[in-house]
Simulated assay, not measured.
Amino acid sequence: MTEGRRERADAVRNRHAILLATEELLALHRPEQISMEQVAAAAGVGKGTVFHRFGSRMGLMRALMVERALALREAVTTGPPPLGPGAPARDRLLAFLDAVVGVVARNKGLLAALGHAATTAHKPEEDPPGAHPVYQFWHGHITALISEECSDLDAEVLAHVLLGALQSDPILRLLEQEGGRRLADSLRTLAAALLDASATATEPRIGRHP
């Protein structure tokens, strides 16, 4: 292996180790409680390596979220149903909500931290809430599935409502105390109720005049 290829392999290995260490720390602490020094020590690399690759703690958190979200995006676009193509929109929606909760539960507080950064680290017109590409993809996918299943619903707003629950302090505390199963079940119940209510409202009234 040439020196250049060895350096690239080392860089890939270090990146993986840093992101894995960050995720493991996030299982125990909120993002603001984690230092770059802690991440470096857990990953077995120098602090300078972490700063060089990610720039800041928020840069590291963003990179981790994007990494995990890309894996979910691949499952959505090319994976097997019900998360991937080939299942009814309703089943795909419920499976996707389960998967999103799984990502957030493994990285407690990360989505909220990204949302907070979007509203405080930049001017609103430069980086409005929800502008992060991870949120944009999640919101767009949920919107599309709701629209496909129930075209009469305001899918765009409902997608914000479903995702907004993941950024609240009570929900973050619930994830810290109990993990994601209870939240996933509740989101599924909420989404199913919305779809069922819409379907009932649009059913033809047999034997009755409009």
Score class of each variant (00 low, 15 high):
19 L>W: 01
19 L>R: 02
20 L>I: 03
20 L>E: 01
20 L>Q: 04
20 L>R: 04
21 A>L: 10
21 A>R: 02
22 T>N: 07
23 E>G: 03
23 E>Q: 11
23 E>T: 04
23 E>K: 05
23 E>R: 12
24 E>T: 15
24 E>K: 15
24 E>I: 10
25 L>D: 08
26 L>K: 01
26 L>S: 03
27 A>F: 04
28 L>P: 09
28 L>H: 13
29 H>P: 10
30 R>P: 01
30 R>A: 09
30 R>N: 03
30 R>D: 04
30 R>C: 07
31 P>E: 03
31 P>N: 09
33 Q>R: 15
33 Q>E: 12
33 Q>L: 08
33 Q>K: 09
33 Q>I: 03
34 I>F: 06
34 I>N: 00
35 S>F: 02
35 S>Y: 01
36 M>C: 06
36 M>S: 08
36 M>D: 06
37 E>L: 10
38 Q>K: 05
38 Q>G: 09
38 Q>S: 14
39 V>Y: 03
39 V>P: 05
39 V>R: 02
40 A>N: 12
40 A>Y: 01
41 A>R: 12
41 A>Y: 03
42 A>L: 08
43 A>H: 13
44 G>W: 11
45 V>D: 13
45 V>L: 14
46 G>Q: 11
47 K>Q: 13
47 K>V: 12
50 V>R: 00
50 V>W: 01
50 V>D: 13
50 V>G: 04
51 F>R: 10
52 H>I: 05
53 R>F: 11
54 F>Y: 13
54 F>H: 13
54 F>C: 14
55 G>D: 12
55 G>K: 13
55 G>Q: 14
55 G>T: 15
55 G>R: 10
56 S>K: 13
56 S>L: 13
56 S>D: 14
56 S>I: 14
58 M>G: 01
59 G>D: 02
59 G>M: 07
59 G>S: 07
60 L>Q: 01
61 M>H: 04
61 M>C: 08
62 R>H: 02
62 R>A: 00
62 R>M: 02
64 L>D: 04
65 M>P: 00
66 V>E: 06
66 V>M: 06
67 E>V: 01
67 E>S: 12
68 R>A: 06
69 A>Y: 00
70 L>F: 04
